[in-house]
Design a protein around this nucleic acid. Sequence first.
DNA 1: GTGAAAGCGCTAACAA
DNA 2: TTGTTAGCGCTTTCAC
Lengths: 339, 339
Amino acid sequence: MTQDDVAQEVGVSRALVSLAFRGAPGVSEASRRTILEAARSLGYRHNAIAADLAAKTRTTIGLYLLDFRNEVYADVYRGVRDALERSGNRVVLAVSDADEPTDQQAVDSLVDARVGVVIAATLMLTDVDVRALAKAVPLVSVARRVPGVDCVYADDEAGAEAATRHLLDLGHRRIAHLTGDEYEGHLLRRRTYEAVMTTAGRTPQTVVARGYSQEAAEGVARMVLDVADPPTAVFAHNDEMALGVREAAYSLGLRIPEDLSLVGYDDSRIARLHGVDLTSVDQHARRLGQDAGAAALARIRHEDGPVVDVRHAPDLVVRGSTAPCRDESRPADRRGALA
Amino acid sequence: MTQDDVAQEVGVSRALVSLAFRGAPGVSEASRRTILEAARSLGYRHNAIAADLAAKTRTTIGLYLLDFRNEVYADVYRGVRDALERSGNRVVLAVSDADEPTDQQAVDSLVDARVGVVIAATLMLTDVDVRALAKAVPLVSVARRVPGVDCVYADDEAGAEAATRHLLDLGHRRIAHLTGDEYEGHLLRRRTYEAVMTTAGRTPQTVVARGYSQEAAEGVARMVLDVADPPTAVFAHNDEMALGVREAAYSLGLRIPEDLSLVGYDDSRIARLHGVDLTSVDQHARRLGQDAGAAALARIRHEDGPVVDVRHAPDLVVRGSTAPCRDESRPADRRGALA
DNA sequence: GTGAAAGCGCTAACAA
DNA sequence: TTGTTAGCGCTTTCAC
């Protein structure tokens, strides 16, 4: 079933059918209607892939998501869908795995699918590699800022600072930060945590797991918490890892927040469950997705339009997993000593 | 950068380059090596889409997933990836939404992407529509049995029976079942629950929400539980809905399992969290995905091979969300009265 | 408005 | 082994 068949059925040229299908000018309203009608009754479907090949265009949008299990990416996906809903562009997805990111490979598969632009959330590559990638295919980076490349992200420094300060304000001193392998794009939260701690006169304790999943976090957390003088609070890189800490804590008989305060990142649905009730930083992932979708659309239309750099403010959502420090072993602070 | 460029660089014909890239016979080992080498240094990438067009083949596999938020689909996805890892076939994804399923639309997008086979998990369409779909494109249905169509699924009747019996065995009488809109493919669990209840001499109480999400379930559950004589146990269609029941219960001051026993379905990661600890039925979704991937591969190679119908046995995983019924208002049963 | 001809990047015979 | 030719389903000139 090709445009030829439709053309024959209606008794016009194939070229006219092509024009009619693209809503291009140069075809009478009457012809258009007849053609579309005939196409429907014949069950003809426009072959956008062949069209792209012939027109040397790339109208498909590629979406790379780091992880299927982390709900934040479901939200990004929804946002992208919101933005692209009525654009008519196809979206093809490629999904990786938080513990074994295969950015390059997955994005390659999108390039092979001949997409016109790639929306990537979240790239683990180095800045240098991201820029190289952006040379090969128009790229919109989500939740990761790379100067010179289109990007849409929440302010990680603000988020990490809010999280860390929140714990400091609650009187915690031994606050650990749990993160994954040192991917360049994920360093911002860590660095900010360390800076805020240092400024507050506390010693940062950064713990690095092998990956960013719950499972990866749980193993490391058990070691960190099972010592003589464990941290009284943990700030985890994301909610997944926070859940790992939570499981580790419970398995050691520690209560949250009585014995351990816990802060996550992403404010995922799990954080809101009764009994989990996790303090977390909301990145507004769906909005990130929406903006990324819009940016991708702009990029696909004007390959060399201005580079977009959209930064949103995250929000700390305080819930029941954080509470004032009640660790008796903590040294009294100055004011306490003088009082 | 086309095969022509590579051919010119090496000084051979375009056809030879084509053959070399497909590992087809008729090209000497020396030529192949030179060609592949030149291609790499030129940065040439084989255009599988143009190849499909020319060869009139369809090597891409389409994967439809009902919902991004329900982890069971992440598991199916992983399974499919396992199966396709070294097959060389591209996979394109289309994802819908549990509360507003758009099967037809999403699968259409896959058909438009010119896929050779569609793996669908889970279709909400009627059996009739599914079969019509299967005529338009080779289809492998996951977690939904449709006679005459390739399918890979867990035995819903066994799962629902195990869940219902488990609650009955714990002494519960007023056991409600919470499900979503009546999609044909989702009726098996409900019908089984109702049959088991009736056989046990109990009155089934099936409650239908508008969708299959946590949110949809929560609203309905609140109404069901906030009555004079509420059910002492609920069997939910899936873990997502069970979480909704859980939230509703807690918001009404009911404790689980003391005041309410709860069974889900899918044995998702959330079910295993400390404090959630949800009794659930494991469908072994990753294995379903693996088998579906294998079936799709077989179908794409032999369009009219035998129809596959793979059924797995689900497993009830008993956790802390279910306990013996302690409802004092329950009428003593016969043996109790005699003792 | 319409039709003919060329070409997108590739494969598939068939000859050479 | 290699090169030649035709054609996949479509768009795009450009003349009618």
